[in-house]
């Protein structure tokens, strides 16, 4: 591949168009690059690309940058940018759409946030409610030894939580009508696939 070709594939309008069709992706077109979300975002200093530059990269079809940026995984869903954006872009929803897209494209092991979200969802769908102690175990089991090592650094936080019964190890309650919940989810997921 020549250098010019490489450049050309880096800025790929088809990639931008693809992202405009994901859930909430069409809002990205509205971004006018004012930068208000950047001064707003509490996680900006840890993001590879703060929201404004992330949206610019998408608009430009800069596949390489977008696919490796950690931006959506750092979004905490604080909603401050969403109430401030002068273009009315629900940035939190766009971030959700991007996270779903990235997890599907790159796999849930591509980012800790993707694996944690998927594990959270699996536990929730199975039981109808969350059971945090189980979620934590499942997550670290799937995340592997390196993550386990990180987890041990968190023991000083976890120990008092268990002692003070903030992290009960016994199974949390489940709902009765799990079948109903599953059917609602499956139908909704099918509708969402049709919708975009």
């Amino acid at each position: 591949m020549t250098a010019a070709n490489k450049q050309a594939s880096r800025y790929d309008p088809a990639f931008a168009n693809e992202l405009y069709t994901i859930e909430n992706g069409h809002y990205i077109k509205q971004c006018m690059q004012c930068g208000l979300c950047v001064v707003t975002c509490p996680a900006r200093h840890l993001m590879d690309l703060p929201p404004r530059r992330y949206f610019k990269a998408i608009q430009a079809g800069d596949q390489e940058q977008v696919l490796k940026a950690n931006t959506p995984w750092l979004c905490t869903s604080c909603n401050l940018c969403t109430v401030r954006c002068p273009r009315g872009i629900p940035i939190i929803d766009v971030m959700h759409g991007m996270k779903l897209y990235l997890a599907q494209k790159q796999g849930v092991k591509s980012a800790p946030g993707a694996l944690f979200s998927k594990t959270f969802f699996d536990v929730m769908l199975k039981r109808g409610r969350q059971w945090e102690a189980w979620l934590t175990q499942m997550y670290f089991l799937k995340a592997g030894p390196a993550a386990m090592k990180e987890a041990f650094k968190m023991m000083d936080v976890a120990r008092p939580m268990v002692l003070k019964k903030r992290l009960p190890l016994a199974p949390a309650k489940t709902i009765k009508n799990k079948g109903q919940l599953k059917k609602i989810y499956e139908k909704a997921a099918a509708l969402a696939r049709e919708g975009h």
Partner: peptide, 26 residues
């Protein structure tokens, strides 16, 4: 009666906004 998890800030990351909102709507 028989309330289920709302999805918190995480489920939409795994299944999208619409599907999470359907779960919340139960």
């Amino acid at each position: 009666p028989d309330w289920n998890c709302c999805g918190a800030t995480l489920v939409a990351n795994a299944i999208g906004d619409f599907a999470q909102q359907a779960i919340a709507a139960r």
